[in-house]
């Protein structure tokens, strides 16, 4: 038997800032406290479904990613009525997708951040998890529910796309 509150309390102090940092980059806003809170409540309510094949951190990141996407879906009605895709809207609606909102130190970091935000979602996700959060290929695959080879391939392509974007910006 597991004491849910004890477990979640322990996980909260171990991983809440990791979840917070992930959500800041994933949603392009620092206004993510409600999402962080929701992640841990969901984790507590669903703790019985937690399987030890993944670490608590990767499990929490999986919930965080799903929660962010679900939140974006809830807001969907408020978004433009045109036929843009959810993928596009998901990022457009993060109205504060603005480097000023994130503590970026210099122009180079701002440019890098904006370039990441312009990547396709599958590249951006792997870039945030692998490149920024520093998670392993295995952990990233568990969070994205895909094969490790897919993570490696997408990460490689994401780096390539990012480099291309940055060099295009430099030419302007």
């Amino acid at each position: 038997m597991t004491n849910v509150r004890e477990t979640i309390s322990e996980w909260f102090y171990l991983y809440s800032n990791d979840v917070y940092n992930f959500l800041v980059y994933y949603t392009c806003t620092t206004d993510v406290e409600d999402l962080v809170q929701e992640v841990f409540i969901k984790a507590g309510r669903g703790l019985h479904s937690y399987k030890n094949q993944s670490s608590p951190k990767t499990w929490l990141f999986t919930i965080a990613r799903n929660t962010a996407i679900d939140e974006a879906r809830k807001k969907e009605t408020k978004i433009s009525k045109n036929s843009t895709t959810f993928d596009e809207r998901f990022w457009e609606q993060q109205t504060s997708a603005n480097p000023e909102h994130i503590l970026l130190k210099n122009e180079e970091q701002k440019e890098l951040y904006l370039s990441i935000s312009r990547l396709k979602r599958k590249f951006r996700e792997v870039m945030i998890l692998r490149g920024i959060q520093g998670l392993s290929v295995r952990e990233t695959a568990q969070i994205l529910n895909c094969k490790e080879t897919e993570v490696r391939t997408n990460y490689h392509r994401a780096i390539k796309a990012l480099r291309q974007q940055i060099s295009e910006e430099d030419l302007k």
């Binding site: 038997m1 597991t2 004491n3 849910v4 509150r5 979640i8 309390s9 909260f12 102090y13 809440s16 800032n17 406290e33 962080v36 809170q37 841990f40 409540i41 507590g44 309510r45 703790l47 019985h48 479904s49 937690y50 399987k51 030890n52």
Partner: peptide, 22 residues
């Protein structure tokens, strides 16, 4: 963090003990 922790604990009041791997 402490404030959020308190909210989470309050929200989980009704799920004190659960069977893992159920």
């Amino acid at each position: 963090q402490d404030r959020m922790h308190q909210h989470i604990m309050n929200a989980l009041n009704d799920v004190e003990v659960q069977q893992p791997e159920g």
